[in-house]
């Protein structure tokens, strides 16, 4: 099972690289959205590996709340760039 975890972390490196590299704010937002859901998935996977219910609940909360935060951020950026 641990090779799956290694592959997931490797896949996580792509959006992190993109977030550091790209200057355009919307491309950065896309990369952050990808990072958010990938990290939540990784922690959910770890929670299943270790049979840890609490960690899984945290992962599900990250999955929903993290995306909600990004949505608000997108609206704020839109407003600021229009002003």
């Amino acid at each position: 099972m641990s090779w799956i975890l290694i592959a997931m972390i490797l896949a996580l490196l792509i959006p992190i690289y993109e977030a550091c590299k790209d200057e355009n704010i919307w491309q950065k937002m896309l990369a952050f959205a990808s990072i958010a859901s990938k990290t939540a998935m990784i922690s959910l996977f770890v929670s299943v590996l270790r049979d840890d219910w609490m960690l899984g609940a945290v992962a599900v909360i990250i999955l929903s709340v993290g995306n909600a935060g990004l949505m608000l951020l997108a609206h704020v950026i839109k407003r600021v760039s229009q002003a």
Binding site: W26, M29, L30, A33, S37, N67, L70, M71, A74, H75, I77, K78, S81, Q82
Partner: peptide, 15 residues
């Protein structure tokens, strides 16, 4: 994820 996709598409194109 789907709703975030919609919001990002909406926000990035109005800009």
């Amino acid at each position: 994820n789907t709703v975030l996709g919609y919001v990002l598409a909406y926000c990035s194109t109005t800009e």
